[in-house]
Design a protein around this nucleic acid. Structure first.
Lengths: 233, 233
DNA sequence: TCGAATAATATGTCCATACATAATATGCAT
DNA sequence: ATGCATATTATGTATGGACATATTATTCGA
């Protein structure tokens, strides 16, 4: 069966993907060589290569030189969750965004945060607490620690109108980040700020951001009850 | 400055990425044409194209025909969270996996689940409840609904030893999925099964899986207290 | 029998070229 | 000026050929 004349790599990509999803080529199976597929589809080997590389990138295929190409055994359950700027997230949902700075201080960090930031024992960091709200209702509590040695400009940043969340996105480049998601019970501080019962189940996002090897900032975001984070796969 | 002889696309990729991250090319900036970069790096335009495409795929660049290539304004905060099979996740952490089937029935779904599964009003679905545990301690409660019309083989699957979680990964292909993450307070059922206080904050993952246009299954996973989900960006 | 050297092979990458396509820029007629 | 047709241009994709590289398979000697 020779495929349609129109031999662009995306169509080949789709045909191959269909063969995988329909189980004509099962997980673990070795699929034909690039040269053979090129003949089947009536195109150059490079075109096949492009299609198969894309499928390998998205985890459907595993490829090794000389060993050939085989269908991935565990069809890679990868979900990409996009981390929006809080302000944008709120406005996209049709609410009015508001921001309030609660505390702002430069001080020696507590031991645990100091360790997370990987700062020398006697250095100081900037600690900011802020509340983001949506149409007047508390949305998320931001607890932010900034490593001033790693990003000097942050020492003079004014967080009274612009949140650290936004300022850092716009002014700090990062090369790597680590996120931890969990559920925590509201303490007295959270229950007060987020207008909920003590002990209420809250969604929490902890994040550490690096530039090269230096930790720039640690952020703990605690969301108001009912928050739901969506993602596709 | 003409770059080194070494012209492979990954090196070009890295050099360009460095220029973005060092803000030599700032967000919104138009970067040189492929032809110009090819001359700078002393390679073919196709090689530049490969490098820039990869950077566009990962969100650092935005490219449009004729308009040129520019640095993305919002450096794409995408985190890929991999969704493992529960059994593997537990064993990777060094615990002993165990599985217990709690209930298993074919019945007409409650209204909300029926709507999620997009089944006709009078049809029946398979409902399975199961508990996964790690070294004897409850780990996650699986509340699973399976659309039998969409995946017939599931009607005769034996879930007494193999969890729906695993069976479906191995036997059902999907083309699309949607995940919702949230925090909920433990109800009486959860507190009993997961050995925690009623009202304890629990991490929850709700998932809907499609094949083409038909919903295959809905899964609600409620994790024991203290569960943390990690991801990189 | 075992291990090391060697051959074979599938994918990885590159090149030079050509044409396709989408978007912008330009020029012309009104 | 305004609107429309046309030229220009940067990226997108395809080709065929070449060589690189990682593995596997084979051969041969100790």
């Amino acid at each position: 069966m020779s495929a349609a004349e129109t031999s662009n790599w995306q169509q080949i990509h789709d045909v191959v993907l269909e063969r995988i999803q329909s189980r004509r080529w099962k997980p673990g199976d070795l699929i034909p060589r690039e040269q053979e597929l090129a003949e089947e589809f009536g195109c150059a080997r490079a075109t096949i290569n492009r299609a198969l590389q894309a499928l390998a990138d998205s985890g459907f295929l595993e490829r090794r030189r000389k060993a050939g190409t085989r269908v991935a055994i565990h069809p890679v359950r990868k979900a990409t969750l996009s981390i929006p700027i809080i302000e944008q997230e709120i406005e996209q949902n049709g609410f009015t965004y508001a921001y309030a700075l609660l505390t702002d201080a430069v001080l020696p960090p507590p031991a645990d945060i100091g360790a997370w930031l990987e700062v020398p024992p006697d250095s100081t960091v900037r600690h900011v607490e802020a509340l983001h709200s949506a149409s007047g209702r508390p949305y998320v509590f931001e607890d932010r620690w900034i490593h001033l040695d790693a990003i000097g400009a942050a020492a003079s940043a004014d967080f009274s109108t612009v949140s650290p969340n936004r300022w850092l996105v716009e002014n700090a480049t990062y090369t790597r980040g680590k996120i931890t998601l969990s559920a925590i019970g509201a303490g007295s501080r959270e229950s007060e700020l987020l207008a909920c019962e003590p002990g209420a189940a809250l969604f929490r996002l902890e994040r550490r951001t690096w530039n090269k090897t230096a930790v720039i900032t640690v952020a703990n975001l605690t969301f108001a009850p009912g928050y739901r984070m969506h993602t596709m796969l």
